[in-house]
Design a binder for these strands. Structure first.
Lengths: 345, 345
DNA sequence: TGAGGTGCTGCATACGTATTCACTTTATAT
DNA sequence: ATATAAAGTGAATACGTATGCAGCACCTCA
């Protein structure tokens, strides 16, 4: 009805009460009579009043905003993660300030910007954070959560899927099925996810005294997986099973193997991925892969974050959440009936 | 170095100047000597000072935050859009407050929340906005931009890809190639994008006096496209070309046609999509499709938004940005050498 | 009847910054 | 050298809300 910004004073005048009353009417757990609350609400409605979150934040020292930093949105795994985070935070009454960091960008570049906006907490997905930055956050009492990444000995919550356990289980599955020459297609070299998946896979193979696996690099991209597969088969010794550090590369590898190398999957080559993105279940691929419990991981991350906001003394938690292998059509299985594996290490 | 929040007063004391000086040191275009600026910066650095964006917003009435509302993130087209928006806004020094609205949710539910946070502008992708809401924003001097959606006669910028022109061009392409019985797989029924693509396609076919096209509905999803394709071929008259309202459905349709119906593409059936998502270029699909100029659309949207923030009087702009048909392998082409089409209507 | 609660209310203040205004210092021109 | 403009500075205030405090009305219990 009115023009321009309408403040709590305007509403107060309209309702014939004090500004304090207006404030109390809009905050639960305050002392106000039902009668005045209704009058205030009517006046607010009439004037189109909405409280100014900036002013509220300034005085209450709580913005109800979470800073969310995402790296690497090109991997179709992360839109799903983002979506889940958004729903979870929105549902619990928190807004999200989003930042994307490019591959060549540091999280430390954007973190100060986030903190200027008085976010109540920071969630960082698939990117690491320098210990100094964490310390800085800690001084500001701003909790930090790392998603799918961990750093030893810092004061930050972290929740990861069980990269090592999963990769070991996949090695077991492939060896049990009688494959002789395994191969690994790595993601981006300097990421902990790719390193952990590689380490789990290699160590288990080594433990079982099987032939050392081949290795190629696919940068977590479809095209990279495609080319990595070709590279693997261009060598002297050819693999009969490939484990890819993510699904996207696995799908690239499959297309290379089928369409270009004209080999049959899984008869001649088995392929296993990681993430269980939507595309993995497409009829044309039916990819056998590892599915992290994204929903559960996100929800724990969110709960822990909010818990830690209201109780800053709580020490940081480092969690690993096991997922499961999803058996589809791209990998030969052991003779014995094989159950989907949940390795809890 | 210190603990807790450090304010401009702390920095002022440390540097031996007034709080005003500190403020000026952090804002360009203010009157301050180089000497004191350096002293302030040193003190700020020493104390780890960062200005409080909430306080700044409160007084300057500018938050440097943009509200971004996204619907329907499941379509792989939109992560790319989001990514482009984020880069563009970040680059120009703006933060983004993100909201996701589920299919059953109204934008009008989240808009008030956005406005509470004093965002300088609101961008809404693939969702409409009631005229009342637009009016509300206008009262608050908050510019609104619709991305890939438009509403007649409201005071909001909008930028769309050329749905109608594109669909007409696709109809032409398919008819010119000699197809006789076209079909259309629609997206979500009540979206303007799906409706416009249908209308353009149908109207052009009608104009050319060709056989009326078949139609099925795929809800913009892979599985929906898969099933829609099966439904189309289950009928009495079978299509020899299918235009899908987005790529995701087209890929589903391809898998259904090849893997289940055992038909050859494009020899027996042509398939054309819309969006040019990453997956469309995968070796296994090589989908012929329409590519909107996402980068350009986003950049124009962002520029217009910022322009409109600094000059609220500027009238709203409604733009249509033409894209191009990307010729790949899933559609038969006319005999004459066919150029990628840019229809500017 | 009065003492002590209880439930509401308004006043006044604080949050941390930007900005106006008046003032002082410095630079420039005559 | 002085007059005058320009540049720099600090004090004070405003932004819009939450909240401690004191006051007030009303009620309860003896």
């Amino acid at each position: 009805m009115t023009r321009g910004r309408v403040t709590s004073f305007d509403v107060a005048k309209e309702a014939g009460v004090s500004q304090s009353a207006v404030s109390r009417a809009f905050n639960s757990g305050t002392s106000i009579s039902e009668k005045t609350r209704l009058r205030v609400e009517a006046a607010a409605e009439k004037l189109g009043y909405r409280p100014n979150a900036m002013a509220r934040t300034l005085i209450s020292r709580r913005s109800n905003m979470i800073g969310l930093v995402m790296a690497d949105i090109v991997n179709p795994f992360y839109p799903a993660v983002l979506d889940t985070f958004m729903r979870s935070f929105q549902q619990l009454g928190h807004r999200v300030m989003l930042f994307m960091v490019a591959r060549d960008q540091q999280v430390s570049d954007v973190l100060p910007q986030l903190l200027e906006y008085q976010v109540d907490g920071v969630v960082i997905t698939s990117a690491t954070l320098s210990p100094e930055m964490v310390e800085h956050c800690q001084r500001l009492q701003t909790p930090v959560t790392l998603f799918n990444r961990y750093v030893e000995g810092i004061q930050a919550d972290s929740i990861c899927c069980d990269n090592i356990g999963a990769s070991r289980a996949i090695a077991d599955l492939l060896l049990d099925a009688g494959h002789r020459q395994l191969a690994f297609i790595a993601g981006v070299r300097n990421t902990s996810t790719s390193q952990d998946r590689e380490q789990g896979f290699f160590s288990r193979i080594h433990e079982r005294r099987a032939t050392a696996p081949l290795k190629a690099e696919g940068h977590y991209q479809y095209q990279g997986g495609y080319e990595a597969a070709l590279a693997l088969f261009a060598g002297e010794t050819k693999p009969d099973a490939i484990f890819c550090a993510n699904d996207l590369m696995a799908l690239g590898a499959i297309d290379a193997i089928r369409n270009q190398l004209k080999l049959n999957i899984p008869e001649q080559v088995s392929v296993i991925g990681f993430d269980d993105i939507k595309e993995a279940s497409w009829k044309n691929y039916q990819l056998t892969t590892y599915r992290p419990r994204v929903e559960k991981m996100v929800n724990t991350a969110v709960e822990n974050m909010l818990e830690r906001i209201s109780n800053p003394e709580r020490p940081a938690l480092q969690l690993i959440e096991a997922g499961e292998i999803v058996i589809r059509q791209t990998a030969r299985l052991p003779e014995t009936i094989y159950q989907p594996i949940v390795d809890e290490r």
